[in-house]
């Protein structure tokens, strides 16, 4: 049995999902799990037809909630590693082996596929702010293209990670406080082909997201031990 599971969280990605799955299939022979987070379109049907395992949570769980569903599934089925990528086609499957190689070399517990050039000016400002507050030295804090080893899966499948909303700073802070080794792997990403980012869509949502994330950073100040570094 394969010990690595590809997890794709998706919401209304019928336009891109078959292409994404085909790309993953071309790059690897790993089993593929799609977590359909309340799509109104045919995302789940298309993914199933393409041979993916499809989970459909009965409630809307958000991007991270969907990913955690995949992590918990992986934990339950004894997968040793999980790679997550977005369903909108911006993450290129050809880089998956690079992410896994970092875990295989035992250089890290969590590998981030980083492509900081993708960020708009506003996003760069936001990342710089988060880097400053948290002391996390990563270029691409919000990348959803990541690989987790067994240790990272066990931690992030836990209750402590359930109330996070995004696969970004909160997850990294939790991983750091658990002393997981996090490494960035430079990759190339395509610019978003359909639709804008879920987060950076309206000023109200952006403001709320920024305030929540800043509060999260400060709330975890002591546990993350920035002072010690």
């Amino acid at each position: 049995m394969q010990d690595t599971l590809i997890v794709i969280p998706a919401k209304n990605e019928a336009a891109t999902i078959s292409g994404v799955i085909a790309e993953v299939r071309a790059a690897t022979s790993l089993p593929l799990l799609l977590v359909d987070d309340g799509s109104a379109d045919d995302t789940a049907k298309i993914a199933r037809a393409a041979g993916a395992i499809v989970l459909t949570p009965p409630l809307h769980l958000g991007a991270w909630g969907a990913i955690q569903t995949g992590l918990r599934y992986a934990l339950e089925r004894d997968y040793r590693r999980v790679v997550t990528l977005d369903a909108d086609g911006q993450h290129e499957a050809r880089w998956i082996p690079d992410l896994l190689a970092v875990l295989d070399g035992d250089a890290a517990d969590l590998a981030i596929g980083a492509f900081p050039e993708r960020g708009s000016a506003a996003r760069q400002v936001a990342w710089a702010l988060f880097r400053r507050i948290t002391g996390l030295g990563f270029e691409d804090l919000t990348s959803g293209f990541r690989a987790y080893n067994a240790k990272a899966i066990a931690l992030l499948a836990g209750e402590e990670a359930t109330l996070l909303d995004y696969q970004d700073v909160g997850v990294l802070l939790l991983a750091r406080s658990a002393k997981l080794r996090i490494v960035e792997v430079p990759v190339k990403m395509r610019l978003r082909t359909t639709g804008p980012s879920r987060i950076f869509s309206s000023w109200w949502v952006v403001t709320k997201y920024m305030l929540e994330t800043v509060l999260l950073c400060f709330a975890h100040w002591n546990r993350t031990g920035r002072q010690r570094t």
């Binding site: 989970l55 949570p57 769980l61 909630g65």
Partner: peptide, 12 residues
């Protein structure tokens, strides 16, 4: 977590 577990049980 219940919603996640339900999704894990009711795999297509």
């Amino acid at each position: 977590r219940l919603a996640q577990e339900l999704a894990m049980r009711a795999e297509s």
